[in-house]
């Protein structure tokens, strides 16, 4: 059974177009503390590539990309 990860912060950016979801994620990241898990929901196709690219470049950890019903959930951990 897939282990459910509890997010410290959920960013619901559904309905927002690129680059909205990524910018929302960056905002949440700035407000979070190291170790926090952040989850972003997006209906924009671009987020699936943009958000993981940002998480990698910023030296954080991509935990999961989950295809949900009509949207994608991207879960990351703030490392730095």
């Amino acid at each position: 059974m897939a282990e459910e990860i509890k997010a410290d912060k959920v960013v619901d950016a559904r309905g927002s177009f690129c680059p909205g979801p990524l910018m929302e994620l960056i905002k949440a990241y700035k407000e979070a503390k190291a170790g926090d898990v952040i989850s972003v929901y997006s209906t924009d196709n671009g987020t699936k590539t943009d958000a993981p690219a940002w998480i990698k470049k910023s030296g954080n950890e991509l935990i999961k990309i989950i295809d949900r019903n009509g949207y994608v959930e991207i879960v990351m951990k703030k490392v730095r």
């Binding site: 690129c18 960056i26 671009g46 590539t49 943009d50 690219a53 470049k57």
Partner: peptide, 10 residues
Amino acid sequence: FPLNRVFTME
């Protein structure tokens, strides 16, 4: 540029 390209629209 803030995104992984040089402009918002691909």
